[in-house]
């Protein structure tokens, strides 16, 4: 979106630049901002005002999406610190993490054959949810650290978060498939 890169999303929302975020406060700011900028406010104004307001409302929506989501927020913060988050070349030597990914994948594969597929699936989803929560908590600390080593570690944690997200999506797809098969 071709809009000036300053102010940052945080500045736009009047929030301190940090990974930790008060979700309720963020939501309130979002509503206040859109109350001011949304094109519906300018429906009977001139074309120019409508165009400019649409740009601003779009920008506000985009910023909200980024700030709302820990993964996107983390990547954004790394970007602000000048660190690139390279999707494709990230690898990890964290064997514990890799093992768990494999286990969860296997578990998903066994859901269909389970006695109670939906219950089995829900359990896996809870597990993934907990893992994600732990990662997010860890990220808060790492970003608070702020030094180069912490930010490096944050990048690695974000990569892991991304893996968990994909697992989450796969679990949801499986849920949808199972539901469709019922009807």
């Amino acid at each position: 979106m071709a809009v000036a890169s300053s102010p940052t999303h945080f500045e736009l929302f009047g929030l301190r630049q940090s990974f930790a975020i008060n979700r309720q406060q963020l939501d309130e700011r979002f509503r206040e901002l859109q109350r001011t900028a949304h094109p519906d406010r300018f429906a009977s104004a001139s074309d120019l005002e409508r165009r400019i307001s649409a740009q601003h409302a779009t920008r506000i929506n985009e910023a909200y999406q980024v700030l709302k989501d820990p993964l996107r927020r983390g990547r954004y913060l790394l970007g602000l610190a000048g660190i690139e988050f390279d999707d494709e070349h990230r690898t990890t030597r964290d064997t514990g993490f890799l093992m768990e990914q494999m286990e969860l994948r296997e578990a998903l594969g066994e859901v269909r054959a389970a006695q109670e597929p939906f219950a089995a699936l829900a359990e896996i989803q809870d597990r993934i949810g907990n893992d994600i929560q732990a990662l997010v908590a860890g990220l808060t600390e790492l970003f608070a650290g702020g030094d180069a080593a912490s930010l490096q570690a944050a990048g690695e944690a974000l990569m892991k978060l991304q893996f968990f997200r994909r697992l989450q999506d796969e679990a949801v797809e499986l849920e949808v498939t199972l539901e469709d098969e019922l009807t």
């Binding site: 009047g14 929030l15 206040e32 901002l33």
Partner: peptide, 9 residues
């Protein structure tokens, strides 16, 4: 609109 909420300390 954000005036009451300047950079949170």
């Amino acid at each position: 609109a954000m005036a009451g909420h300047r950079v949170d300390e």
